[in-house]
Simulated scan of single mutants.
Amino acid sequence: MKPSIKLSSVSVEFPIYDPDRSFRKIVLKNSVGGLIRNDAGAGGRTTVQALTDVNLEIFPGDRVGLIGHNGAGKSTLLQVLSGGYFPSSGNLEVNGTISSLLTLGMGIDPEETGYENILTSGLYMGMTRREIRSIIPDIAEFCELGQYLYMPVRTYSSGMSVRLSFAIATAIRPDILIVDEVIGAGDAKFAGKAQARMEKMLSKANTLVLASHSNDILRTFCTKALVLKAGRIEFYGEVEAAIEAYQALA
């Protein structure tokens, strides 16, 4: 069987071009995981090694949880899988359509109307206009924005923008779903509705990669789990065994 996702010796590093500003190094390290090193061969350039020599195969039907401390490299790996970051070395192979719920609101144009943003977001995700038209009623009903969908997004409140972004992101049914934590959207009244929609999407995903700090969520939605530490894979296997391996690292 051909894997949905295959990573071969994938490494990701980020150069820091102002190494004297240590605060920036600390923030970057905490954001992407891995190790900071000084590379004398590159003119003293400082780099953050976010992922190191990652080899991984995820097959159709696999539902993989990512486990690790903050800064272990989970978000960097998700960004690589979704196309947000390119490997510094190694190869990434993806077979199938991907939808990622990593940063709500990314790609939303404040000058476009809600309906225009639905169209452009769908086109960006590789959908045809016919496919986009078929999901518009679902998005409109779920986000509950009514006539505001005819208005520019810059006229929305922050909560309204999040609801539109969440409705768009969860309306499609991709081959591969990439999620960083189980996110909600909007105010308290809307949060329960968003949680139910997210859980339904997770349960129906064919191939899933989900980062979470919740063991209950991992047990509910995942069949395998991967433990990351300082940008390296420490364990990949059954969920309970992965949780035990992670706890042993603490």
Score class of each variant (00 low, 15 high):
49 Q>N: 14
214 S>V: 03
51 L>H: 03
149 L>E: 10
84 G>F: 10
158 S>Q: 10
98 I>L: 07
108 I>N: 02
78 L>G: 15
90 G>Y: 08
191 A>P: 07
225 A>S: 14
245 A>F: 02
155 T>S: 11
94 V>Q: 10
141 E>H: 08
37 R>N: 06
79 Q>H: 09
152 P>H: 01
36 I>N: 09
60 P>H: 13
59 F>S: 15
46 T>S: 14
53 D>C: 04
240 E>W: 06
26 I>Y: 13
249 L>S: 06
180 D>A: 08
177 L>A: 08
79 Q>D: 11
89 S>M: 09
37 R>M: 05
239 V>D: 08
108 I>E: 06
230 A>R: 14
203 S>G: 12
186 G>S: 10
138 D>C: 03
127 M>W: 11
236 Y>F: 15
200 K>H: 12
113 T>K: 12
166 F>V: 06
199 E>Y: 14
134 S>W: 03
129 R>T: 07
121 S>W: 00
33 G>Y: 00
170 T>S: 13
28 L>M: 00
142 F>G: 08
170 T>D: 14
43 G>V: 02
7 L>Y: 07
21 R>A: 05
198 M>G: 04
14 F>M: 05
203 S>C: 05
26 I>R: 15
192 G>N: 11
36 I>P: 04
3 P>E: 06
229 K>V: 04
157 S>V: 00
44 G>V: 02
166 F>R: 01
238 E>I: 00
40 A>T: 10
228 L>P: 08
66 L>N: 03
215 N>H: 11
184 G>Q: 02
201 M>Y: 12
110 P>L: 12
65 G>K: 00
172 I>Q: 12
93 E>I: 06
170 T>E: 13
212 S>N: 05
74 K>S: 15
36 I>M: 12
211 A>C: 10
136 I>C: 09
77 L>V: 04
233 I>H: 01
66 L>V: 07
128 T>G: 15
223 T>H: 05
21 R>E: 08
213 H>N: 11
219 R>Q: 06
179 V>S: 13
106 M>L: 00
157 S>P: 08
